[in-house]
Nucleic acid binder design. Structure first.
Length: 154
DNA sequence: GCCAACGTTGGC
DNA sequence: GCCAACGTTGGC
């Protein structure tokens, strides 16, 4: 069964336009250094799962497009690169600590702003909107996914 | 730049 | 295993 997710990205780092311009319109979701988010990718994500591509830490935070999981979790190369900001000296090749999936563009959408999402009763259950939530990857229920699609097409 | 909320670290 | 200190996230 297909599942759904919301994945945050800082548009300065990787925006929906970066995704659209990438080879195969696919990007490796590198740099996740939070265990809960990693576990979602490692243990739960399947190829074909739906992704809400969310812009965070920017002037207009919100959902900027739809994507899908294009490759199941595999080791994050940046953890082994001393020059990378995501380098992790305690991770080993034999037992990599950090993994990530690849994400492929389905379509860019209008920006569904965080403000608009907060105003939509159908989205009130979304983990993204829970006070204090900071998780960069959160599961989205089929009901929430449909409600987001409806708002995007409205 | 502020700051609240949360996760991680490390001393004990 | 507790918990204070610290670092990070992310909206505003």
């Amino acid at each position: 069964m297909t599942q759904f997710w919301l994945m945050k990205s800082e548009p300065d780092e990787a925006s929906i336009d970066h995704l659209a311009a990438a080879p195969g319109q696919t990007l490796p979701w590198t740099g996740v250094r939070n265990y809960q988010a990693r576990n979602f990718m490692r243990d739960a994500m399947r190829v074909g799962d739906g992704v809400l591509f969310y812009h965070s830490s920017c002037a207009e935070p919100g959902v900027a497009g739809l994507a899908e999981v294009a490759r199941a979790a595999y080791p994050d190369a940046t953890q082994f690169d001393p020059a990378s900001p995501w380098f992790d000296a305690e991770s080993t090749l034999a037992q990599p600590r950090w993994v990530h999936v690849d994400v492929k563009l389905v379509r860019k959408t209008r920006l569904l702003s965080l403000r608009e999402m907060r105003q939509a009763p159908a989205l009130s259950t979304m983990l993204l909107l829970k006070p204090g939530n900071r998780l960069s990857i959160t599961p989205v229920t089929p009901t929430e996914w449909q409600a987001v699609l409806a708002l995007l097409d409205a």
